Each structure stands twice: as C-alpha cells, then as structure tokens.
Amino acid sequence: MAAFAHSAPCWVDVQLPDLEAGKRFYGELFGWTFRAGEEVERGGSGVDALSGGKLVAALAAKQDGRMPTAWGIYFATDDIAATVTRIRQAGGQVITEPVRVGSAGVLAQAADPGGAVFGLWQAGDRSGFQKQNEPGSFCWTEVYTRQKDRVDAFYERVFGFRGTDLGAAGMGESGRGESGTKEPGTGGPGSTEAGTGEPGTGESETPESEPPESEPPESETPEPETPETPESGPVESGIGGSGADMPGADFRMWSPAGTEPGPDTAIGGRSVITDAFPAEMPSYFLNYFAVADCDATAETGVHLGGRVSVPPFDIPYGRMAVLHDNQGAEFAVLQPPVSR
C-alpha cells in the first residue's frame, strides 16, 4: 500500500461536544456516512467519515470540555522521530511525543513558533485520505499567523516546503494552468500521494492528556470574531483573498520538497493575521472541503444549525465560504471554477 509523500496533508478530524449531532450535521452537509472507529484505549469514542465509501475525515467526541471544538490537520512523515527533532530545532514545540497507534501508524502533535497546532502521522497499515480534491472531501489547508518570517522558516526547515509568495509569477488567475480551473491543493496532495489507507478514527487529544489509540490529535482552531464581508479579516490575506487580485495581500503557497514551487504543486499556504483582529487571537489552521455548489452548501449549513462567517464569494480558484458547524467548529468550503 502506497503512503502519502512526506509533508503532504494526509488527514483531518474534528473534536465535538456532541458526536451524534456532528454526524447529523456533516452527514447532511457533505453526504458523509459513518462507521465506528477502532476501540480507543481510554474509552473515547469516534467515527470514520466516508464519502462514496472512501475515507475522508473523522469525528471524535471530546473527552474534556476544555478542548477546542475544532478541525485539525495532519501532515505525513516517513520518519516521525526525525521530524520531531527538526520541529524542536526550528523553534517549534512538541506537544505529544511520537506514540504508536497499534498497527495503524505513529502519531505526534506539535505547534509552530506562532502557536498553530498540527499533527504528524507516520503510516503503518493506515495512510490517510482515500479521497480528496473532490466534492465532500478535503482540498486545502492554510495557517494564519502573526509571525510570518519565523513560521515560513519553520515549515521550510521541518517539511522542506518551497514557498511561492502571492503576486509572484504564476500566482494570478493566469497562473492556474491553461484551463484556469484548478482548485487549491489539486497539484499538491492530489499528485503526491496514492490516496489509499486511513490514519485513524478521529480520536484526538489535548496536550494535557495521553494520546488516543486511533486518530491523531487535532489542531486548536480558534473562533475569531469574523468580519461581515469577505474583504476584511484573515481570509483577505489567504487563498480566500482572491490571490493576485489583492495586491496588499500577504500570502505564501507551499509546495513539497522536490517539486517546482507554484500553484500546480501547492499543498497549503500561510496567511497573516492582521492588527484588525484582537491580539489574543491565536494562530490556527483553516481547512477546506471541496463542494459542488458553494452557495447551496452555505445555505444548508445554516439550515442545519451552523452559521456562515464569510459569505460565498468568488476567487481565482473558484467560489468559497467560511462556515462554523452546529457546535462551533470552523472550516471553509470551495467550489472549483467550471472548466472552460
């Protein structure tokens, strides 16, 4: 079984106060079905989420009310011990030391110099997504930070990412390939891994607790006070900020080591939290899911008890919106542009 390329996003999960409510929300929103996760050592509970019978994510019941209700991202590594060492050397923090999860693989949790939390996964029997960059599955991730220089250097050292700054050659609409239809991430994780296997069942944990038996832990995504229009706030600086159409934006796309940096190979990005937001707002990752109809998805999310924090709007990569589910977890949705 082929594993994900080193540094590719390979899994997402969400920690929720009410697992059953989460299943109802995401089942209707994305058409996901669910299956019970593996037994968790400390009695936790979680489920795998499937789209068209293929693994796409996991939902976990929070074991501690102090844990954030948030979506977390995990990066693949072929040597988790070496990656953990690089994290420390590059100024990051290791929250959870590498822990074996049965035969599934090995997990760890870390934070970058700006405080954004992410997971590591070294595959055993399970690799990660079985489906991505298609409606109902993960398609992109980006970190929001106030310490862009330290964070850029960190990810480049730890994962070997190669950066392309917004406004550089090939970053505008004309840089999305001849058809101009490519969505974020389709040249990254979609082309650098086989899309087989699964890293777990959604059981995440806090830095204060021991790691779970199944899914890697999730990142701490805050729920900032969100602007009323997509022209303000962190989204302005990221892929949600319409790329080269916003000359003042400060955004960097990351491509894996060994690839030509640019949108065709990008697997994620870095944006900047501006002074317009409270100083106590922490760094965090925002994860995107591909959808067939952005407006309909946003409307459905509200109908299901969620809320839209950034209404649907067009960007060079399609049409996107930022939502919170019915329990507060934040995520984005992206509808790719129609092929020409």
Rank of each mutant, 00 (worst) to 15 (best):
Ala3Tyr: 10
Ala5Ser: 14
Ser7Tyr: 04
Trp11Leu: 08
Val12Thr: 15
Leu19Asn: 11
Leu19Ile: 05
Ala21Val: 07
Ala21Met: 07
Lys23Cys: 14
Phe25Ile: 01
Phe25Pro: 02
Gly27Thr: 03
Leu29Pro: 04
Thr33Cys: 02
Phe34Ala: 04
Phe34Met: 03
Glu38Asn: 11
Glu39Pro: 13
Gly43Asp: 08
Gly44His: 12
Gly44Leu: 12
Gly46Cys: 04
Asp48His: 15
Leu50Trp: 04
Gly52Pro: 06
Gly53Ala: 02
Lys54Val: 00
Lys54Ile: 00
Lys54Gly: 05
Ala57Asn: 08
Ala58Tyr: 02
Leu59Phe: 13
Gly65Met: 01
Arg66Phe: 00
Met67Gly: 11
Thr69His: 10
Ile73Gln: 12
Tyr74Lys: 00
Tyr74His: 11
Thr77Arg: 09
Ala81Gly: 12
Ala90Ser: 13
Gly92Met: 09
Gly92Leu: 09
Val94Asn: 11
Val94Leu: 10
Ile95Gly: 03
Pro98Glu: 08
Arg100Asn: 12
Gln109Asp: 03
Ala111Ile: 08
Pro113Asn: 06
Gly115Glu: 05
Ala116Trp: 10
Phe118Cys: 13
Gly128Asn: 12
Phe129Ile: 09
Gln130Glu: 15
Gln130Leu: 05
Lys131Arg: 15
Gln132Asn: 15
Gly136Trp: 09
Ser137Trp: 06
Trp140Thr: 08
Arg146Leu: 11
Arg150Thr: 07
Arg150Cys: 01
Ala153Asn: 02
Tyr155Phe: 14
Phe161Pro: 01
Asp165Glu: 06
Asp165Asn: 02
Gly172Thr: 01
Gly172Arg: 01
Arg176Phe: 01
Ser179Gln: 12
Ser179Ile: 01
Ser179Trp: 11
Ser191Gln: 15
Ala194Gln: 11
Ala194Thr: 10
Gly195Ile: 04
Thr196Ala: 04
Glu198Lys: 07
Pro199Cys: 15
Glu203Gln: 14
Thr206Arg: 07
Pro211Cys: 10
Pro211Ser: 08
Glu213Ser: 15
Glu213Gln: 14
Glu215Gly: 14
Pro216Ala: 10
Ser219Arg: 07
Ser219Met: 09
Pro227Ala: 13
Glu228Lys: 15
Glu228Ala: 14
Glu228His: 12
Thr229Gln: 11
Pro230Thr: 03
Ser237Thr: 02
Gly241Thr: 04
Gly258His: 08
Pro263Met: 09
Gly268Ser: 12
Gly269Val: 04
Ser271Trp: 02
Val272Asp: 01
Ala276Gly: 10
Met281Ala: 09
Tyr284Gly: 00
Leu286Met: 14
Phe289Asp: 03
Ala290Pro: 00
Ala292Cys: 06
Ala296Gly: 02
Ala296Met: 02
Thr297Val: 13
Ala298Cys: 10
Ala298Ser: 13
Val310Asp: 01
Pro311Cys: 05
Pro312Gly: 05
Phe313Lys: 13
Phe313Ala: 15
Pro316Met: 05
Tyr317Ile: 03
Gly318Ile: 11
Met320Glu: 01
Ala321Cys: 07
Ala321Ile: 08
Ala321Thr: 11
Leu323Asn: 10
Leu323Val: 13
His324Gln: 13
His324Lys: 07
Ala329Cys: 12
Phe331Thr: 10
Phe331Lys: 09
Phe331Gln: 08
Leu334Gln: 06
Leu334Asp: 04
Gln335Pro: 07
Pro336Ile: 11
Arg340Glu: 12
